[in-house]
Design a protein around this nucleic acid. Structure first.
Length: 759
DNA sequence: CCACATAATCTTTTT
DNA sequence: GATTATGTGG
């Protein structure tokens, strides 16, 4: 990778182009143009949802380059997600007419990693440090807790991880944690454990996500010369989603901006939804104080949503206090009212959404212009199941990420050990995977020597195979494994990463392990491993790939085809769709009980902002629903409609509930008159209403509450059936609604009758 | 050392 | 209800 750092203090090109009529400025409204052209000094752009924020950011970047204000290497552009970074890069390239080399554009973490690698030794690290993921971190902390004789069932490692992460979010090293904040974890030992954890990380030559920011900060403060270099280099700083910055990121920005003071932050306090992750709305609220004389530009014209949708979103968010105050407006008055539906339970809700999607699809709408936005990950399941039975193509965005899958993490662990023999965590993960007879006993011996000599497990192993401390049964395979690693390492230079990986997985027996595995997931895992080697093809070397894996934990595959998206509200930020379904608007779920319990009013307001984000994703249609009953943890719970529903201005709503629901009050117009819970009345389709089977059907509360179904929907032992995931099989046993089926490919499985159909 | 059985936890959101 | 961690017996 060509590093533009050398361009450090080079004078900016001065082509003196008056940008007055530059073509890229055409079509911007007044506020947008002001935001683009205010190049000097601090600028805060308050950009409401759908007001062209991304456009302003990219145009500003283009403007900087086109007017010759700065070389690419003198611009620091920070985003939160890799997706946002990629998008900005592409959009700038499209405007400029070619990729821009040398821009410092990326996520906070990626940019910090880049700086940290350059000055690793100043942080006590080697430039080749590994970036740990949550899984590694938890395992490490768990080891630590056990070594300190802390009862891990009373004080789980995950909880400690959360505490440590919150400290890191605030830019606090172990020595800086305020005394009063020791907390009651393990009897107030949290800070000591934090210190021990940091020491372990350094010993492992590893950092976690929080460290990328934290080390960078401490490095800047301890080395003013280094900081000054960067301050001089970055003449212009652009920050996206400023409302989501945590304290560490804020400090990082403030340090870097102190040179030229040309910092432009774009954000929307009404879309701050990451408080739980340490984000500080306060950062945006006090921008003017931190950067005196800052220009404030408000983008308030919404180009995305219809009048009704925008009015609903604006009316809702008006219930929050402590806002910077923006009033979104649009010239696209009217449109469909926001539809609000009350249904009996989660299943009915999924049915309603499914039917509506089918209607839209029949009317010619594209599935990829629709999205189901849920509050919590577990809600996706009901919709997936419904879409499968309806045969609707869907995609779950976010969810189980590619690089978080077990088999991928295993394979990556092999690569990590090859690239970095001292990576103990990776070594431990695969030393006995596949089973090669190196069990716990042998591993304990390795650990003992490693600790005593302060060497890595890998090094300890190399010594121990020369002695007879380990039983031959374990020693032989260990020696073999170390020999393999040495060989792969030798091949690393001459072999492409994809080929090398294939060889490693093959020769280590890892591939064979899954080939021998008869479980239904095995073929998929092998497929994923192939996908991994395919992904590796794009990288020059292993190190580059490993960095990618650590920082870009995303699955960019399978994005084609006309599919409806299911995702959490959080991952929907920044996206837009013609039609948006917002299910699960119930007290307890949304606003989420835990947000209320843990953060009180602040938590409620963040939930409200989340609702606001959800509504403003919609261009044409928003369908909100709430279920009166929901099964959580296998227990039925009833819930009231979310208070957010009552906060929506009624004049832009069309609200009904199934007959018999919420009859006691509230402003529900019972759907009983027409007997329908569909949404089509409100949306005036050029086609008929919902199917007869659903129209006019009143849900029988008794029947739903006690699902004493007909035995297994008429399935019998010996029937041949089809399952969407497992394929064909035959029924072996029937137990009310559960079927025991031997699938031809997936083997024996216990499945609910509703999941299969007669073949 | 490994296979199997039981227990426990999960379900807020993610770089 | 499912996956995953832990424990027990072979």
């Amino acid at each position: 990778m060509a590093d533009p750092f050398e361009l450090d203090d080079a004078p900016a090109p001065d082509r003196g182009v008056p940008a007055l009529d530059a073509p890229y400025l055409a079509g911007l409204n007044g506020a947008q143009r002001a935001a683009v052209e205010a190049l000097d000094g601090p600028v805060l752009v308050l950009a409401g949802a759908g007001t062209g924020k991304t456009r302003v950011l990219t145009t500003r970047l283009v403007h900087l380059l086109a007017t010759g204000r700065a070389w690419p290497s003198q611009i620091l552009a920070v985003t939160f997600t890799n997706k946002a970074a990629r998008e900005m890069r592409e959009r700038v390239a499209a405007r400029i007419g070619g990729a821009v080399e040398g821009l410092w554009l990326g996520t906070f973490h990626a940019l910090s990693a880049r700086i940290l690698r350059r000055h690793a030794e100043l942080a006590g690290l080697k430039a080749s440090f590994t970036i740990l993921d949550t899984d590694d971190q938890t395992r490490l902390l768990k080891q630590l807790l056990q070594a300190e004789n802390v009862d891990t069932s009373r004080w789980p490692a995950r909880q400690l991880l959360a505490i440590v992460q919150r400290w890191k979010d605030r830019g606090l090293a172990p020595g800086q944690v305020p005394a009063g904040e020791a907390g009651d974890f393990a009897g107030g030992r949290a800070v000591d454990l934090y210190r021990a954890y940091q020491a372990r990380l350094i010993a492992l030559n590893a950092v976690d996500f929080g460290d990328l920011m934290l080390h960078c900060l401490t490095l800047f403060m301890a080395n003013p010369g280094v900081l000054a270099d960067y301050q001089r280099q970055f003449k212009y700083i652009l920050v996206d989603e400023y409302q989501d910055t945590n304290v560490a990121q804020y400090l990082w920005l403030r340090l870097l901006a102190q040179g030229h003071r040309n910092i432009c932050c774009v954000g929307d306090d009404d879309q701050s939804i990451y408080g739980w992750r340490g984000a500080e709305v306060g950062n945006i609220l006090r921008f003017e104080k931190d950067f005196p004389g800052a220009h404030i530009v408000r983008l308030e014209q919404n180009y995305r949503s219809t009048g009704h949708i925008l009015a609903a979103a604006t009316g809702l968010i008006a219930h929050n206090s402590g806002r910077l105050g923006k009033t979104l407006w649009t010239d696209r008055a009217g449109g469909h009212p926001v539809v609000v539906r009350g249904v009996w339970d989660g299943e009915a809700e999924a049915r309603l959404v499914g039917e509506t999607v089918e209607q839209f699809k029949a009317a010619g709408e594209s599935l990829s212009e629709m999205a189901v936005l849920v509050r919590a990950g577990f809600q996706t399941r009901e919709f997936e199941e419904r879409f499968i039975t309806l045969g609707l193509a869907y995609r779950v965005v976010g969810g189980a990420r590619f690089y978080e899958r077990q088999e991928i993490r295993d394979a990556v662990a092999y690569l990590r050990v090859v690239a970095q023999p001292d990576d103990d965590l990776a070594f431990e993960r695969i030393v006995n995977l596949p089973r090669r007879g190196i069990g716990n006993v042998a591993l304990q011996i390795l650990h003992r020597l490693a600790r005593a000599e302060s060497i890595s497990l890998h090094a300890a192993g190399a010594r121990l195979i020369e002695t007879d401390e380990i039983k031959p049964a374990a020693r032989r395979p260990l020696a073999g494994l170390l020999r393999d690693f040495a060989r792969w390492r030798a091949e690393m230079a001459a072999t492409g990463p994809a080929e090398l990986t294939e060889r490693i997985l093959d020769e280590s027996g890892y591939t064979g392990m899954w080939q021998a595995d008869r479980s239904p997931e095995a073929p998929g895992r092998l497929e994923n491993l192939k996908e991994l080697t395919r992904a590796l093809d794009e990288f020059e070397n292993l190190a580059g790939f490993l960095e990618h894996v650590s920082l870009v934990m995303e699955n960019d595959a399978q994005a084609n085809g006309d599919m409806i998206s299911i995702m959490t509200l959080h991952s929907a930020k920044g996206l837009e769709f013609d039609t948006v379904f917002l299910p699960g608007w119930e007290e307890g779920l949304f606003p989420h009980q835990r947000a209320l319990d843990e953060s009180g009013l602040a938590g409620l307001e963040e939930e409200r902002r989340l609702a606001h984000v959800g509504l403003t994703r919609a261009r044409q249609r928003a369908i909100v629903s709430s279920a009166a009953n929901r099964r959580i943890h296998n227990q039925w719970q009833s819930a009231l409609p979310s208070r957010f529903i009552d906060e929506l201005p009624s004049e832009c709503l069309e609200r009904t509930a199934d007959t018999g629901l919420y009859s006691g009050g509230g402003n529900w117009r019972s759907g009983g008159a027409t007997g329908t819970a569909s949404v089509s009345d409100a949306m005036a389709f050029p086609y008929g209403g919902p199917r007869a089977g659903w129209r006019g059907r009143t849900i029988d509360i008794q029947a739903v509450a006690s699902p004493a179904r007909a035995p297994a929907g008429g399935f019998h032992v010996g029937d041949r059936v089809f399952h969407q995931k497992f394929g064909y099989g035959s029924i072996k046993a029937v137990d009310v609604d559960r079927l025991e089926i031997v699938f031809e490919k997936a083997g024996p499985k216990r499945v609910l009758d509703s999941f299969v159909e007669r073949a």
